[in-house]
Design a protein around this nucleic acid. Structure first.
Lengths: 204, 204
DNA sequence: CCGGGGTCGTGACACCTGTCACGGCCAGGA
DNA sequence: TCCTGGCCGTGACAGGTGTCACGACCCCGG
């Protein structure tokens, strides 16, 4: 039996992907068996390479890392996933865990700890950045409604209400109502600010 | 004489920093002699470690990678700098070269090419992502005025005009004039959109 | 069965914003 | 010297925006 842990790397930036591969290659008990740059290639590559653990970035073309984690959970129940992300947004952590991820690591943790996190995840343990876990609790759950999120995502572009309304196929008046509600829930005063805050909290 | 190239790594994300170090350590002729996580520590660490080439990320606390490149050029004339960034924004390339950087690489280039880029820079050559170079030419120079950039940077937050005006110590009317001018130069219709576009172009 | 909440829309109101015209100040180039 | 251009401010106008009240529909849990 091979005792090495077979790792799949998913990150849209090729340079980071290669660098992480070099980092993990230093560990004798780890082996990078696949590298992909898109979220929708994760399941196929993981199956083909018989990966044990998938290291997933969140920001990726195709589907994002959180959705990829859910896809892996559904298609390959024995494979663990570890989400590695640039932004320590509280909402990301919650959504990643709901998607079945076994671990959540921010990219500014010391590089020494990455291999250890992979081992822990492979052993069936949960790995969660402790500072982020507390922050996630105090912020509470996402208060935004589905429509409010949809409208805010478009509002990130910064265009006028008419543009947003056309893009979501709603009346301008309804869009303004949703935006007003979102502004209240984010304690802001303009839709641009509300969109930015929601984005930073990982609510979109 | 030592024939190895002494490299300094600057990136705010410790995981990426460590991974890049592992990647460069694979090359026998390269040696990572310093790692920093802030832009304002680059010059001191480069001098102390007698670095030949500085690999600088743009997004960093303290001062950004472009300003750090300028600081290295002024303080350590013999040291070359290579800017490595996540976002391939045309304005970044222009500003990096004006700051005396010898190279500009985007983070989604293949990892194999990084070591080669370091060698080229050390040899006195320029390394520039070719697709970005053409894009930088068609976009032309930054048309925004100093005040317009300052106002737009604050406008990124999304707050109302009164907040922006207070933050830059200007009259609300003047702020609206600057914003209107910036909206025209970016071919947009709201200040939020103008701020986003200017940000994406690297004009801020 | 009756609430409660999300969704969609309308209408009205006060306020904010984007635009334009105008004036004044100061630096640098023709 | 004049003149162009950036900078700062005011005033006014039309249109956009945030808020509220109201009504309607649907679904779900009590």
């Amino acid at each position: 039996m091979s005792k090495t842990i077979r790792v799949l790397l998913a990150d849209d930036q090729a340079l980071v992907r290669g660098a992480l591969a070099a980092l993990l290659a230093l560990e004798p008990d780890l082996e990078v068996v696949a590298e992909v740059g898109r979220g929708d290639e994760v399941v196929g590559a993981a199956r083909a390479a018989r990966a044990d653990v998938c290291l997933l970035d969140i920001e990726m073309p195709g589907i994002d890392g959180i959705a990829a984690a859910a896809a892996v959970r559904d298609a390959l129940p024995g494979v663990r996933t570890l989400v590695v992300t640039t932004f320590g947004r509280p909402g990301y952590l919650r959504r990643a865990l709901e998607a079945g991820a076994s671990g959540f690591v921010v990219k500014d943790t010391p590089s020494r700890q990455l291999a250890e996190a992979v081992r822990r995840v492979h052993a069936g343990l949960r790995v969660v950045d402790p500072s982020l876990a507390t922050e996630s609790l105090v912020d509470g759950a996402n208060p935004l409604t589905e429509r409010e999120r949809e409208v805010l995502r478009v509002a990130l572009g910064g265009g006028p209400v008419a543009t947003i309304a056309a893009s979501v196929h709603l009346s301008p008046g309804t869009v303004r109502n949703h935006l007003s509600s979102a502004i209240g829930k984010t304690n802001t005063s303009t839709r641009a600010e509300a969109a930015r805050v929601a984005q930073e909290r990982g609510w979109l």
